[in-house]
Nucleic acid binder design. Sequence first.
DNA 1: AAAAATCTTTACAGTTTCTTAACGCTCTGG
DNA 2: CCAGAGCGTTAAGAAACTGTAAAGATTTTT
Lengths: 235, 235
Amino acid sequence: MDKTLILVVEDDLPVQNLITVTLKAEGYRYLTAQTGQAAVITAATHNPDIILLDLGLPDLDGVEVIRRVRSWSNVPIIVISARSEDPDKIDALDAGADDYLTKPFSVAELLARLRVTLRRLNTAAPDAAPSVFRNGALSIDYAAGCVSLDGEEIRLTPIEYKLLCLLSRNVGKVLTHKYITQNIWGDSLESSTASLRVFMATLRKKLTRSPDSPAYIQTHVGIGYRMVRVEENTE
Amino acid sequence: MDKTLILVVEDDLPVQNLITVTLKAEGYRYLTAQTGQAAVITAATHNPDIILLDLGLPDLDGVEVIRRVRSWSNVPIIVISARSEDPDKIDALDAGADDYLTKPFSVAELLARLRVTLRRLNTAAPDAAPSVFRNGALSIDYAAGCVSLDGEEIRLTPIEYKLLCLLSRNVGKVLTHKYITQNIWGDSLESSTASLRVFMATLRKKLTRSPDSPAYIQTHVGIGYRMVRVEENTE
DNA sequence: AAAAATCTTTACAGTTTCTTAACGCTCTGG
DNA sequence: CCAGAGCGTTAAGAAACTGTAAAGATTTTT
């Protein structure tokens, strides 16, 4: 695969055109689909590297498209939504979308998201189920169940560890509050979104050695959190 | 055998298509089967190098397929299951599956698993386990079944010995309470977590010669215990 | 059968971890 | 500029966990 193939799902033709022209200019290959049905079929038959999905489709709900694609594939999905469709955005992320863009968005922003996602794809382990995860100065040994920063081990409580694992196993992906709390506390407790904030604080503190340490965990206001890939320049 | 032959057992045709297209692109030969019955027969007649088996089959239980194939063949079986929590997955591994993939999976992941499995096939290395373990002043002779500290033998009770072996065979790894109790007491008794604490205490006491002896066993609150590698400066 | 050793259970104190609530901050929209 | 919502931070009490000692219960040895 030398040229990245991107599936653009957008029913508004002027917008679709804007996107495809941009992609072409940047040297990407692309496919298009105007309906949810077509999107699912095209995704299955052509196996694109990334899917750009507008949530406001005429036939199928965008979330349903994600669900169907996710039933067999892990391909990165970047969702495009209008501000008014805010709740849909969260549903989309819960259904397995990786990232989101809010209309109106700049071309530069779109390209930036694509690059980030692609970098994640390429740096993703070429080997199966690696037992140790690395990101900047951070490394997690899943098998041993221990975490170290800059070679020095840091001790985490059970919930902190689970939380960090969840984030690291989904690097680059935006995880919603709901998704996180359900994964860590189960479906039972519901008020744990307050706890989540506290744990995020302690986790961030433990992941910060010096004031200029990189920020591993991003906050997405109203949505959730995400661990980002960090440059290797932490020397 | 210059080209690897892979049997793909999957009843969902789009998914099957995705897999076979991928395999073809990578230069593998493949066969397909939509049912468990067909899978067993095809495996018997064509003798594939690897079997990719979806657990959600219409007719036969996937685990049953594994059992039947395993009755005459040792061919590697990689299981594909829909949900990560699937108890079937564990049954499948127990029945003799070699590895598993959870839907949704990325194509890269699938290929990685295949490569790993193939590599393992070619380099089946019967490596002999060393009979004596050393860590700091501690040494365990598994064959002789005796333990010494600083050259001097220390006497351990059967359970203490089993416990120490379990820890030493997993140096650096955090072992959960459950893992330890199941390995030592079996699945039956459940209240043995209290006993575990007592044994840990006695074991630690017996591994401590002077007040400044290194701490071989760390406790991880809420999780379990771990033996750590100790520097050789215990002179 | 008696003695010794080993194992299990219980209780309790000390510690760690988790939850909850309060407060200040930033950002957004009117 | 103000009000409200969402977030980070801190602190304190509650809950859970651990280490230790000691007393039965069980098994093994003498």
